[in-house]
């Protein structure tokens, strides 16, 4: 997986803008109204800081009407290019009546089907939807599509309590701990893993029964998973979808004088990935020795690149 991610990252840096649309629905009570607006503002701030190529649109409270959302999507349908990346984030109360998922917004609510129709207008080949609302699990069947990562805060439409998911997804965008592979980027996969753990830890520490179980699918499959991994085929696309991308990483890859070293580095990373996949079948000591040798070599190359 590491190899694929590295290659896709390299491709991504040379192309495409990033679009982030955040919709925060009605709270129904002052504290929820404030909470949803605060989260939406937090995402707005984080995405705007994520790089000069970021296009950020945030619809919150009274401005998050169905009409307005439709207008924004119509406009973006003309603006976004196939090589761009597009992310839609939904905050608020969701509902599920056994048939339709809806997000609660001013005026008529928007159904999962309507959300899917809006998203289908967007030409970006790589899309991410993070539905953080209650009952969001019920939106997944309508939203799942090839080349689209769908992340939901609840495993089904029956988890109806207000969610804590957005709080930790927001944290994932600025907490260095979310960058699990320490490559300087936070991918959708890393943000999902971070948020999922934080949500579980929240319920554990508060001694509450968990009322939300985040899930994701990035294969177009309706059967989302809690633990994306090569064995279940989930996570590949999410691992390459970069949410936060510091400039340093781009400099590193694009510096012409270091291209040979970068190629060697990529080769070593691929070897490390392959070795890790063979771990279960290997003698532990042999695995450790081979891994140590490769990691040491990689560290030396990196030191040369950084000189």
């Amino acid at each position: 997986m590491r190899l694929v991610i590295a290659l896709m990252l390299a491709g991504m840096t040379a192309q495409g803008a990033s679009y982030f649309v955040t919709v925060a629905g009605l709270g129904g009570m002052p504290e929820y109204d404030k909470q949803f607006a605060d989260w939406a503002a937090g995402f707005d701030r984080q995405f705007k800081e994520s790089g000069p190529g970021a296009h950020v649109i945030t619809l919150s409270g009274n401005s998050a009407t169905k009409q307005r959302i439709g207008e924004v999507f119509s406009q973006l349908a003309h603006e976004v290019q196939p090589g761009d990346s597009f992310a839609l984030l939904l905050i608020g109360h969701g509902s599920f009546d056994g048939v339709d998922y809806k997000i609660n917004i001013p005026g008529p609510d928007a159904t999962a089907g309507e959300l899917a129709a809006w998203l289908n207008q967007i030409p970006a080949q790589r899309q991410l939807v993070v539905n953080m609302t209650s009952c969001s699990g019920a939106s997944l069947p309508a939203l799942a599509r090839k080349d689209r990562i769908v992340i939901v805060a609840t495993k089904s439409g029956n988890e109806k309590n207000a969610t804590v998911f957005p709080r930790y997804w927001l944290d994932a965008l600025h907490d260095p701990a979310a960058d699990a592979d320490k490559d300087g980027n936070v991918s959708a996969l890393e943000a999902f893993a971070y948020t999922q753990r934080k949500v579980a830890a929240y319920f554990e520490s508060e001694k509450l029964l968990a009322t939300e179980h985040p899930m994701m699918s990035d294969t177009g499959n309706f059967n989302a998973v809690r633990d994306p991994k090569p064995e279940n085929g989930q996570g590949l696309l999410a691992g390459s979808f970069i949410l936060m991308r510091p400039e340093m990483a781009e400099n590193e890859v694009t510096a012409p004088a270091k291209q040979k070293l970068v190629a060697k580095k990529d080769d070593l990373e691929a070897k490390i990935d392959r070795l890790k996949y063979q771990k279960a079948a290997m003698n532990p000591e042999e695995y450790k020795q081979q891994l140590a040798a490769l990691l040491l070599e990689l560290a030396k190359i990196q030191a040369e690149i950084d000189e």
Partner: peptide, 22 residues
Amino acid sequence: VLASLEAAPNFKQAQKLLLQLS
């Protein structure tokens, strides 16, 4: 430090420490 780099092979601080320890 090897366990750290196994999880994140490009973790620069860990790489530096590995070089220091090797």
